[in-house]
Amino acid sequence: MPDITNGELVTATDFPPSVYVFDDTRQSDISSTTYISGSPIVSVYFVAPTSGRVLLTIGGGLQDSGTANRVHLAPVIREDGPDGATVLAANVVTSGVGCPEQTTSFMYVSRTTLVTGLTPGRTYYAHTAHKVSGGSTGDIASRDLTVVPVP
């Protein structure tokens, strides 16, 4: 998609609304070493803008409830809905957040990632997923997602 040039008419479909979701239901004693969604699932639907690009911010309060464990929280994006094809897989390295081992107080962190290559006008579903690195358990105090369309 070419950039919007000076004097060009911008329509509402170029910039659908931003969306945000937050939940502070505590996720206690997480022991899964593969990504899970938790309960309740923290999710939003959004429409890709004309540019096919969005800023995706994930945040949360994380802590190690044992003595040697990292807690990872990462976003997932799927086409159309919860059962759609995965566009962005959960990955703490490229788009997620985490806390170091032996964090015995909640550490509140966030990360913003530019997601590109989305199909303009298509509906997408984003949700949080979390896991621990192994060794013991971890806790999450809050989880949030924000999706902002960008030019």
Rank of each mutant, 00 (worst) to 15 (best):
P2N: 11
G7S: 14
E8H: 14
L9I: 15
V10C: 06
A12H: 04
D14A: 00
F15L: 08
P16N: 05
S18T: 05
S18A: 08
S18Y: 07
V19R: 05
V19I: 08
V21Y: 06
F22Q: 07
D24E: 05
D24S: 14
S28K: 13
S28V: 13
D29V: 12
I30V: 04
S31K: 14
S32R: 09
T33F: 07
Y35R: 00
S37I: 03
S39L: 07
V42S: 04
V42Q: 09
V44I: 12
V44M: 10
Y45T: 08
V47S: 05
A48T: 01
P49W: 00
P49D: 00
S51E: 05
G52Q: 00
L56D: 15
T57E: 05
G60R: 04
G60E: 08
G61R: 01
L62I: 04
S65D: 09
G66R: 01
G66C: 05
T67V: 13
N69T: 15
V71T: 08
H72K: 06
R78C: 07
G81Y: 05
G81P: 06
G81A: 07
P82G: 14
T86R: 08
L88G: 05
L88N: 00
A89K: 06
V92S: 13
V92G: 14
T94F: 08
T94M: 13
V97W: 11
G98N: 12
C99Q: 07
P100H: 11
Q102M: 15
T103H: 13
T103M: 06
T104L: 15
S105Y: 06
M107K: 12
V109A: 09
R111Y: 08
T113M: 14
T113H: 11
T116S: 12
P120K: 01
G121C: 00
R122Q: 14
R122S: 10
R122G: 09
Y124S: 00
Y125R: 03
A126V: 02
H127L: 04
T128F: 10
H130W: 09
K131V: 14
V132P: 09
G134E: 01
S136L: 06
S136H: 10
T137F: 11
T137M: 12
G138S: 07
D139G: 05
I140V: 02
A141E: 06
A141S: 14
R143T: 13
P149V: 01
V150C: 01
